[in-house]
Design a protein around this nucleic acid. Structure first.
Lengths: 207, 207
DNA sequence: CAACCTATCTACTCCTGCGTAAAGTAGCGA
DNA sequence: TCGCTACTTTACGCAGGAGTAGATAGGTTG
């Protein structure tokens, strides 16, 4: 790994490198299992450089969480907001689009998802992370309440169920290695989840 | 914490005390956050005693996982196996009973569940834990395949979805504090989950 | 081409916390 | 009453890893 020549890069570029390496290592080893030395090695950089660009280990971890949470949130937000097809598109369409965006983001940046979902659920970083999660759940609850009737509070447990189901399915998909199918996997996963939950949600509407 | 009188107890009893204390501390602090001193203090016992009865920190943690996983597994197994009402009871009934058992176990032993679900999902203990989880998923998949038709492999993603949904709902319930309602909360949660997913599962049967 | 700024590296310090050793004390059976 | 031994207190060895100080060298500007 000794390139022999040590290169000076723009701080922004180095910071990006360090963040990427940190996410990779954190996703494999967890917050405590990862050492700053390992992150430095992965980034192809010395440890003081990691401190210079990423700060303390905790700050670095927080930065990873922030970046990945932001990425995920903005993907889903972008998918739901613009009503692409003009005219009325019901809750079913919007829900499916949100799920597709979720699965696409998760399958595309699996390391980031792993850090958010498995490594940050506990400890002092639980707060920020499930703030983001909660934000997703609230959106889902609002969508459900608007379309199925009832208050947002009443829809909250259902939204948690839905989000949990999506996480479970994503986790399964990321766990095994799957042969590349003919269709985009994310869309397939979204359709599968919709097939399971939508009839039930639809039935709740006409109670 | 000095009781003044120090009591001699049977090794089995002491071991139980240590395990209970360990689960309590691990559930609050996580594997790395918990110190052996803290566990000793919680158990009302000196640190060497913890080592005498619980072994190494890792061994102790593994023992906690084993006990709680076993508790959960046997609860659910017991709930599904004996067909209480004679005669045919369909997949819907068995599924509901399994879910009730799950939610009952989780709400009853929340510390144990926390250790399994949040603290052990990463690191070197991921293996044993999601072996147990996988076992539950397989059972669910078998049940679904038997009743809805199709192979077990095809039912696997659906089973993961189902288990994820249950975990999400349980996590939500354990997160907030809820006023004691008129009905057993576990049964309420199971009914809620069934309402969401069963119509979809039922629809899959007649494809 | 020389001076200089600063990104980067090598090589430390220091602290936390696991795990254990040694010596003393007190419950409980004989 | 005597001892066996589970248990406690206290102190320490040791490893791993976070964070830093000082040296080094890439690039840049006059």
């Amino acid at each position: 790994m000794t390139t022999g020549t040590r290169r000076r890069l723009a701080p922004e570029v180095r910071r990006r490198q360090v963040l990427d390496a940190a996410i990779a290592v954190f996703s494999e080893e967890g917050l405590h299992g990862a050492s700053m030395d390992a992150i430095a090695a992965r980034a192809g950089v010395s440890k003081p450089s990691v401190y210079a660009h990423g700060g303390t280990k905790d700050e670095l971890f927080a930065a990873c969480l922030a970046r990945e949470a932001d990425r995920l949130m903005s993907s889903m937000t972008a998918a739901v907001l613009p009503d692409g097809s003009s005219g009325e598109d019901g809750a079913q369409q919007r829900l499916r689009r949100a799920l597709r965006a979720f699965f696409r983001a998760v399958t595309t940046h699996r390391q980031g998802w792993t850090v958010l979902y498995r490594q940050a659920s506990t400890g002092e970083f639980a707060g920020p992370v499930d703030a983001a999660r909660r934000s997703i759940v609230i959106r889902a609850a609002e969508l459900l309440a608007a379309e199925l009737g009832g208050s947002v509070e009443a829809a909250e447990p259902i939204a948690h169920t839905l989000v949990g189901a999506a996480e479970g399915l994503a986790d399964w998909w990321l766990g095994g290695d799957h042969a590349p199918g003919e269709q985009e996997p994310a869309d397939l996963l979204a359709d599968m989840l919709m097939a399971v939950v939508w009839p039930g949600l639809d039935a709740l509407r006409r109670v």
